[in-house]
Computed example of a mutant assay.
Amino acid sequence: MVWTLQDAKNKFSAVVDAALAGTPQEVSRRGKPAVVVLSAADYQQLVQSAVETRESFAEHLLAFPGLKVERALVKPRDADF
């Protein structure tokens, strides 16, 4: 069910009860999806699942399928100090 923001405010207990019963409750604002109310247990499960499947930043960079970039064949110039 999608609640309007006004209805969700007026019947917040019903929104929370439904979320605790295992059915996430969507709330819209001005006709557009705004938020989802879900139980703390469901939220923790989502967070734990994300943490378990997340790769490291280094793994993310190494998996980049980008093009191989050739280095320029330029000799360094002499520097006087």
Rank of each mutant, 00 (worst) to 15 (best):
K32M: 08
V51I: 09
D80V: 15
Q6C: 05
F12K: 13
Q44Y: 08
A50M: 01
T53A: 12
V69T: 12
L61A: 13
P65Y: 00
D78P: 00
M1Y: 03
F57C: 10
V51H: 11
L5R: 01
A19E: 11
P76L: 12
P76V: 10
F81E: 09
G66H: 01
D42K: 04
V15C: 10
F57M: 09
K68S: 02
T23I: 04
D78S: 07
L62N: 12
V69F: 11
V15W: 11
S13W: 02
A19K: 02
Q45A: 15
F81D: 14
A21E: 12
L5G: 12
V16L: 12
A58D: 07
Q44W: 06
G31E: 10
K68A: 07
V15Q: 10
L62D: 13
S28H: 13
Q6I: 05
P33M: 13
E26Y: 04
D42T: 08
S28E: 15
A21L: 03
F81K: 15
G22C: 14
A34T: 06
S39P: 05
D17K: 04
Q44D: 07
S39L: 09
K68Y: 07
V27K: 01
A72G: 07
S49N: 15
K68Q: 03
Q25C: 04
N10Y: 04
P65W: 00
S39I: 12
F12P: 04
D42P: 00
A41R: 15
E55Y: 01
A40H: 12
V16N: 11
